[in-house]
């Protein structure tokens, strides 16, 4: 076979790929929602005074961050049934990708929390605020703005990692491109279009994150 781009074929498969793009976006959104919440839990767990918990969570975060996401996806998907828990590809995929990125986001939050000046903690103590109020009203509101850039980058990161979900059969963009490719024995158009769609979404998104970060900084007078 040689290079021969077929525009008719492109027009034929484009609607299917765009429909799958929606699935990709949903997968990224759901995974990110899990990661945002779970990441905060992991970050706060590392700040509890109980050292065994702190150490275990620290090691867990390191473990998740230094092993491949695709292997974690397989692990979550296949290990459940061995113990009688059957997960659909979507559920397993969302758990795996959410967990993976929660480890990354916990590091972003941790850096944000550590960047809050010591005086703020001391003032909270001096004002006799409860731990809950200290975090909710004083620390987290100040820790979030410096975290915005990191959080935005990982949102784009999670979006770019969703093709890995195709390995367990989540019908996202890559999976659909594979299916089209093997139905028609043509890989040039589907794979190239997937690349173009990714670029078309992630480049503007990266620009948007930069603008948003600047806006947050200005808004807070930083």
């Amino acid at each position: 076979m040689r290079f021969d781009w077929n525009w008719e074929f492109t027009a034929e498969i484009l609607p299917r790929l765009l429909a799958a793009t929606l699935n990709t976006l949903i997968a990224a959104g759901v995974g990110y929602a899990i990661a945002v919440v779970l990441g905060l839990v992991l970050a706060l767990a590392q700040r509890t005074p109980w050292t065994p918990l702190t150490k275990v969570v620290r090691e867990l975060v390191e473990f998740i961050r230094s092993t491949p996401l695709v292997l974690q996806i397989f692990f979550v998907f296949y290990v459940g049934p061995q113990f009688g828990i059957r997960l659909s590809p979507w559920t397993a995929g969302m758990i795996a990708i959410g967990l993976h990125y929660s480890a990354y986001l916990s590091e972003v939050y941790r850096a944000g929390i550590e960047a809050v000046p010591r005086g703020q903690w001391e003032s909270c103590r001096a004002l006799n605020l409860s731990t809950r109020d200290t975090y909710l009203r004083i620390i987290i509101p100040q820790a979030l703005p410096p975290s915005v850039a990191g959080m935005g980058n990982y949102l784009i990161g999670i979006f770019k990692d969703t093709p890995m979900l195709s390995v367990i059969g989540v019908a996202e963009l890559m999976h659909t491109a594979n299916a089209i490719g093997s139905e028609h024995y043509r890989f040039l158009e589907p794979y190239t279009l997937v690349g173009v769609i990714f670029l078309a979404i992630s480049l503007p998104a990266a620009g948007f994150v930069r603008v948003f970060e600047g806006w947050v900084r200005r808004k807070l007078g930083l």
Binding site: F3, Y191, T192, S202
Partner: peptide, 19 residues
Amino acid sequence: GTSLLVQLYWIFFVLPLFG
């Protein structure tokens, strides 16, 4: 801007079409 997996498939399956 694109995923590693997309790049891998593209390089492995599409580049041969360019020889």
